[in-house]
């Protein structure tokens, strides 16, 4: 009997051994909700992404209960995405499209609750006829299972998941940001100032405001890129951070803030039932 158990134990041990342990960086990401970015191969873009996510992580740690670890760069062709929650994807003209296997992983990531923020980083020049990121983005995102998109409506939960926001500025502002379109026929419940949209979380957010550059801080803790000018610029940077915080809260808590409007009603009902009894 004892040797049988031993053999069984060995078998289990070999099975366990046969499994490749995941990348320690990814384990870290799963444990600490680390923010991740797609490595594009363009040095300055990648360093801006890393600095940006580090800046956002710093602000989150300072102001909220979310305390992300070090941001990590993701090689889409190699890394397992299932340990991640949030992926920042700057769109550059030179980056090579991921392999089909990577797209399979990306689609699974989107389906199982992950979110990608696509940043075309062209908020300053878009619409002026210059080279635009939109074309490249369309090419990159074509194989992804993305639901119909629409500009984020004013009653989207992103506008109130932590701060109250009206705009989602980055280094640039004024551009529309897109998310999953609200389902047709969604109506505001009585007494609620907004519609209950997106019961799930939009799998993608798309914009061109170059958020990572607005969030980026250097080793010394100071911003790396200038945003706007003077006090207005600093205000815009603050708003960019607030967008970042709202975005991460949205990724992690889903429609929690939408539901909270029902809490007083639920508590009211409990009170009423007590009176009735």
């Amino acid at each position: 009997m004892r040797w049988l158990l031993l053999v069984a134990g060995l078998l289990v041990a070999t099975v366990a051994q046969a499994q490749v342990d995941p990348d320690p960086r990814l384990i870290q990401a799963a444990d600490e909700v680390a923010l991740a970015y797609v490595v594009t191969g363009e040095g300055d873009v990648d360093s801006a992404s890393e600095a940006g996510l580090r800046g956002l992580s710093q602000v989150l740690t300072d102001r909220t209960t979310v305390e992300p670890g070090e941001p990590i760069g993701i090689d889409l062709n190699r890394d397992d995405l299932s340990l991640l929650t949030f992926l920042y994807w700057p769109v550059t003209e030179t980056q090579a499209p991921p392999t089909p296997q990577a797209y399979v992983r990306l689609n699974h990531f989107l389906r199982s609750g992950g979110m990608i923020l696509f940043d075309t980083r062209d908020g300053d020049i878009a619409g002026l006829g210059g080279p635009e990121g939109a074309g490249v983005l369309r090419q990159l995102a074509a194989p992804l299972d993305i639901p119909p998109l629409a500009p984020i409506p004013v009653d989207h939960v992103l506008t109130r998941s932590f701060y109250l926001l009206h705009d989602f500025p980055g280094r640039y502002q004024g551009r529309e940001v897109w998310a999953e379109a609200p389902p047709a026929g969604a109506e505001a419940a009585e007494g609620v100032p907004f519609r209950n949209l997106n019961d799930g979380v939009s799998p993608v957010i798309i914009g061109g405001n170059s958020w990572s550059e607005a969030w980026a801080i250097g080793e010394n803790g100071l911003p790396i890129y200038s945003v706007g000018s003077g006090l207005d610029g600093e205000r815009q940077r603050e708003m960019a951070y607030r967008f970042g915080i709202n975005l991460i809260m949205y990724v992690l808590t889903g429609n929690y803030k939408s539901d909270q409007v029902h809490v007083p009603a639920l508590l009211d009902r409990l009170r009423r039932e007590e009176v009735m009894q």
């Binding site: 909220t64 305390e67 609750g113 979380v201 991460i248």
Partner: peptide, 10 residues
């Protein structure tokens, strides 16, 4: 705290 597993509960 908000964390990756919170939406699972929700």
């Amino acid at each position: 705290e908000p964390h990756a597993g919170e939406r699972t509960w929700r």
